[in-house]
Write a protein that binds this DNA or RNA. Sequence first.
DNA 1: CGAAACCTTGAGAGCTCTCAATGTGAGTGG
DNA 2: CCACTCACATTGAGAGCTCTCAAGGTTTCG
Lengths: 230, 230
Amino acid sequence: MSTDYTARTSTQIPAGHSAPFPSLDASALFAGCPEVIGTPFSYAREEEVYGEGEEAEFVYKVVSGAVRTHKVLSDGRRQITGFRLPGDLFGFEQGKIHRHSAEALTDTKVLIFKRRQVERAATDRAEFACQLWDMATNDLRHAQDHMLLLGRRSAAERVASFLIDVDARLGGTGTFALPMTRRDIADFLGLTIETVSRTLSQLEEDGALQRVGGRQVSLRRARLHRMIED
Amino acid sequence: MSTDYTARTSTQIPAGHSAPFPSLDASALFAGCPEVIGTPFSYAREEEVYGEGEEAEFVYKVVSGAVRTHKVLSDGRRQITGFRLPGDLFGFEQGKIHRHSAEALTDTKVLIFKRRQVERAATDRAEFACQLWDMATNDLRHAQDHMLLLGRRSAAERVASFLIDVDARLGGTGTFALPMTRRDIADFLGLTIETVSRTLSQLEEDGALQRVGGRQVSLRRARLHRMIED
DNA sequence: CGAAACCTTGAGAGCTCTCAATGTGAGTGG
DNA sequence: CCACTCACATTGAGAGCTCTCAAGGTTTCG
């Protein structure tokens, strides 16, 4: 079985797909801005796109593959704040410095835009600035949903919610391969890898999903939805 | 001793104060937009400003007092996503519906703006739209910081971090009265009121702060900072 | 001064974490 | 093609942190 999640992702997620949790669909964002040209670039699996504290010189649009953004504490504890899939934009900052890190989950292709060019375009064209605003507001909504998950939901609810979200982003068929490791899932959900693993086993035992190998899952979405109630 | 936190807040936080965690300072946001007129309005302590699911017809700017925004699950579990103090703007949504609720912590004065007017102004004036974008990006950064807190920090770290943040927003003197209840603190930090209370007692025992009554605190900021290391 | 809301403290339970061992799958080299 | 290796995932046992339930204390406000 192939481990080329990049290929799988790019076939299952059309460029115009409306992403359920991170960014607003941005496939058309730069369409009317010929002055904002993206440069194609590639990152290998696990390669860093940018690190916390670096100058925020560019913004990025995922073409294929997947990227995680996260923050870390000095003792290594890590919180993944989001996964970016094809069509998503990321790398925007309020100041000049990146306040989080970004790494490629798999081999990933992106378009790179000069931050200053984007800001210039936003300053010149209100419609464009409004799209950026809209995108940020949408990201903020997802962040608030995730705060509720991290602050108030049980491990089973977190995992069920996560599976439903990933399914929706990967086409909504109910059957897919998780494009990230248990560690990434754990660091996104505020759990340990052992708890994620145990919870998946429990969900399978309860008939809420089936697994093939470590990554491939088939969800019984009605049961999972019932577990999160909201 | 007075419990008029509204008055205390409004004297300790100048209108132009740069807020450390929620919104970008927005004191001048509508300055150049005479067509966007805010209507003064007041809310009593514990009064709802808007509820989740309601149409998002207005946006709000705090003049005095304080507001909390939160999400709730059907069984009552609540996650406060932020506290809004004078100068802060809130109530923006990506769609037409509020995805969270907002309530006044204390008697609160706000300026209300018609959402459609704000959007019109953003469409017309790129500079204005950029300010809104910037504000949303700033909110997003704080949301990401809070995800790290909720997902990966211990109760002691959460409380210490919270106290430092509130101190900074209330003037940075190290001595202040908490403008919210233990329940609000707990629901912001993803803890129970008992754990918040126990943690405060422990911090006092460790010499990291002193308390007078339930709300007044004096921080030893160096010690608190040492506890969060990041 | 009295009532109600808020806060603190205690005891025990439970959920998740830690530490450890075993199992599984993908890529590699013989 | 198969054995090997390494990273990843699962499972178990016990500990620990936070929660729940309960009682008592404190503050606020009428």
